[in-house]
Design a binder for these strands. Sequence first.
RNA 1: GGGGGUGUAGCUCAAUUGGUUAGAGCGCUGCCCUGUCACGGCAGAGGUUACGGGUUCGAGCCCCGCCACUCCCGCCA
Length: 599
Amino acid sequence: MKRTHHCNALRPEHAGQTVTLTGWVHSRRDLGGVLFIDLRDREGRMQTVFDPADLSKEVFDTATKLHAESVIEVTGKVRQRPAGTNNDKIATGQVEVLVKELLVLNHADPLPFQIDDPEAAAKVNEETRLKYRFLDLRRPEMTHNLRLRSKVAIATRSFMDEQGFLEVETPILFKSTPEGAREFLVPNHRDPGTFYALPQSPQQFKQILMVSGVERYYQLARCFRDEDQRADRQLEFTQIDVEMSFIDREDIYALIEGLLKRVWKTALNIDIPTPFKRVSFQEALNRWGIDKPDTRFGMELVDFTEDFRASTFKVFSGAIASGGVVKAMNAKGMAGATQGQIETMTEYAKSFGAKGLAYIKVENGEWKSPIVKFFSEAEKTALKTKLAIEEGDLILFAADQWLNACEILGKIRLYCADVLKTQGKLTIDPKQFNFLWVIEFPLLGFDREQNRWYSSHHPFTAPVAEDIPLLKTDPKKVRGQHYDIVVNGVELGGGSIRIHQPDVQKTIFEELLQIPPDETKLRFGYMLEAFRYGAPPHGGIALGFDRLCAILCGTTSIRDVIAFPKTAKGTCMMTDSPSQVTARQLRDLYIEVKVKKPE
RNA sequence: GGGGGUGUAGCUCAAUUGGUUAGAGCGCUGCCCUGUCACGGCAGAGGUUACGGGUUCGAGCCCCGCCACUCCCGCCA
């Protein structure tokens, strides 16, 4: 007998119908004479009633002994609940099923943790939840996340399809390309000593697909990076990977704005305004001290370099004299910061190489600060005006090289926002989504230790056309045609227009990155080869699908939107992977393990 | 690799300055209960205080080590 309805389906109009439901025993309330069992399936909950007057003793006794999460099938008549016993908390709360038949499909042992109470279940240690993930995923909150993720994937596919994109799968067994993230290697027994690598992203394949004439490619691509993890980073993750031919940056912006508009509408029924604001890398650092700014709150950075150029306060004027800047930030309402909080902020500053953190507490009409005595009246006036200083404010300074000074205050700005949020002085609407494009990143950074340039994105990123001459004269000033999409301080994705001119690519590889030609050939030969046979101008982007889902689900950890995530150390609590393999397996792969086995 | 946090009953947590037999709620077992919905009531079982050392008359608490989980830095072209 199959079920006739899901557990969310029944309403007063079904009264009188005989129905069959299947699902899990969500909770059991045994009142001695009458017994209630809330039955739960994927869709919802339904109260069933066992009345001994209407039932055989066997059925009633069986029901009495059911544990939570046992799997049952019940058949009975739908009826309206007696007056005054409706339950507004559930959708089916006006009706109940008077059970006639009960079939126990499977008994459940007592649970390692309770899942019937959402508040209690949400507090359970993540270690336990991950070990018993199959139980954790039964919780409606987690089911919601799985369902939303599925809906977002479908919305993405239908939108991309409408826009003329082909979904193309690319290999999981790929070639090792040792730049960037550490790779997972897969031994090849057919040729001992050779290895595949799992892709960090399908970057090279998607560019080659452009050479193949696909013109518009996308994929919900699994990617693998063997790096340390974070709340928003897993060893394996999913990207919405996109590449297009015969386009410029504007086409990418428009496409992704359309996609996100669709996704937000589908998932949250929210209309997000487009186009998104665009901010240059330089402006992002200048105003928010970070290349992925959270613009949902103020406390922007202000430049005081000119005001302190001739200051008698040598910490400031000295930094400026050696080519640095002085920046300040007004942490509104933080004058009451504790010594511990000031210390935390100082530690942030020190982690960037600063000697300390200068600050002013504005309390009781006074500027309390170890440094304010060095300031001239003009300097004080400048601070007061440009920072709009008021009673209760905390002013924080950074005097350093431009990037460092910005990043110090950027870090502190986020810390202050957290503190103010905890104190209830800063509230952010959970439905507010501030999207923006960060553009005009520097194409190259300079590695002092290795004394060479490195690609700040990846080596196929095209320079801004007008900056190409600077490649040979002033590489630092070259801007890349790279863009990041940021929402609420989260880097949702990034991409670039790619280089399709062989001579520019050659300059980047050989002159700037200083990769020897033979090595270039070894690593990227197939790609450069492909580019000799008619490569269209192209570019693309990749969005972090897990992060996207996490934002939509209102969680900061992507583990909450991945069915079976790994722990921070990369283990799976449920399957206990990774694990040792047999000597035979190793022998077949021609692998010798040099680490001593435990025990 | 480094720094912070956490670890006490199946789950969530308590345990005063280092001091009696380590407690509570939920869950579990048994009994009672005919309108509950996190049902209620009574009774009971359940502990290597993550693990290994040390200090002490005495350690859940202090010290050293170690493991796991977690957050962050490094790392993530």
